[in-house]
Design a protein around this nucleic acid. Structure first.
Length: 125
RNA sequence: UACAUAGGUUGCCUUAUCGCUUUCUUGAUAAAAAGAAAGAGGAAAGUCCGGACAAUAUAGAGAACCAUACUUCCUAACGGGAAGGGUCUUUAUUUAUAAAGAUACAGAUAGUGCCGCAGAAAAUAACCGCCAUUUUGGUAAGGGUGAAAAAGUGAGGUAAGAGCUCACUAGGUUUGAUAGUGAUAUUAAAUCUGGGUAAACCUUAUGGAUUGCAAGAUCAAAUAUACCAAGGUGUACUUUUGUACAAAGAGUUUCUCGCUCAAUCUUGGAGGGUAGAUUGCUAUUGACUAUAUCAGUGAUGAUAUAGCUAGAUAAAUGAUAAGGGUCCUGAUUAUAAAUCAGGAUACAGAAUCCGGCUUAUAGACUUUAUGUAAAUU
């Protein structure tokens, strides 16, 4: 498998997003919060991701774009690890909390940590 | 030569690995895949003006509302720009000229309103004073204030005074002459002289339909049913009467059947157009880009040659690693340069498209102006 991360992994429909915000499980880290729930088993892509950086925290458009890119990149780089952990398809929202610009390496480790927590929860239930 | 200010130009580079968006080619039912090419600015920002484009409205006229306000030119258009004129400020000296800067720069003699403190009085002026007469008048010559006090100086005049009259001066308006496309300037004559404020209302002149790509166009799930067609009209319990649920009626002379209508259920259609998709959309051709020449004081225009340039939509144009530029600081050799170490590398992200304006901007370049300092002749 390739380390690609195209639009098809990202697309979530509007209704799905609303459901996620209402019914999803929240995990809080120091920089990121993650909302997740189990997705449909029929879809091709095992994970669907939505990245959001609130305008409240980061006001300049340039910086917002940068943080989105960094989060996307850190997800993409660890794609193989994440897929090996997965049992069921997931829908995830990643939200950036801080008002300062992120560093790549710290973000990586935190993302992996949070995703591990998700998989643990899955196995328990 | 150096520095400062203003203006103008520019606004980091290379390699490796892994990726993103669009287009083309190969391939193909389709998807996946492989390769190639292209992929963010001077302000993409603010959304402040003007246009293109789109939908709606519109016989014509007036009023209201909004905008603009020295002249000529540029432009698709503008509240933008260029050149010029007036006024004001600063500097310099030759004291009436030059340079630089600023300028919403029509009207206060159409009308209404307003004018802090001080001061007699801030606008149909009478507190003191002066003069007359007798309890009222006349009078802006003189009077501490103020940014501003009823054009200034002199003479005549008078009861005392006063543009009341005259001379010179200052300013405004109108008309004529000369120069200029014009604003205007110079000059002559006539006429006028009770302040400021129009970024107070207002008056005058000129211009202005409204809404914005979330416009608009096409396709179109789900859900619901104004409509059309076809089919159906009870079920459960109870020996029965009946009971429960249920929308359960009307007409066909009275009843039953049948038929018709209504009501309701099921299926199909139709319509509408929500979610969503495509288009508008981005270059084969334009107020286009680059270069050159010519015209013009200039904004700008004309001609020739070459070129065809991002198109996302939970919003692509990136991340990581290494190295190099440039600038600053420090240390060492040394005072030109070199080496080492540390730091900095701005403002900022297209969203229908153009022309402007405004604001932000590390560093570098420029010699285009102006100023300062030093050196040399």
């Amino acid at each position: 498998m390739k380390l690609s991360f195209s639009k098809q992994d990202q697309n979530l429909s509007k209704s799905n997003i609303n459901k996620l915000y209402k019914t999803g499980v929240r995990l809080h880290g120091s920089q990121l919060t993650i909302i997740w729930r189990e997705g449909d088993s029929q879809t091709k892509n095992p994970i669907k991701v939505l990245i959001s950086v609130p305008k409240k925290n980061i006001k300049k458009a340039v910086d917002r774009n940068y943080t989105k890119r960094v989060i996307r990149e850190s997800f993409r780089a660890n794609k193989l690890k994440i897929y090996s952990l997965l049992l069921k398809p997931l829908e995830i929202i990643i939200i950036y909390n801080k008002s300062t610009l992120p560093e790549f390496n710290k973000l990586k480790t935190e993302l992996l940590h949070l995703l591990n927590l998700i998989t643990l929860n899955e196995t328990n239930t």
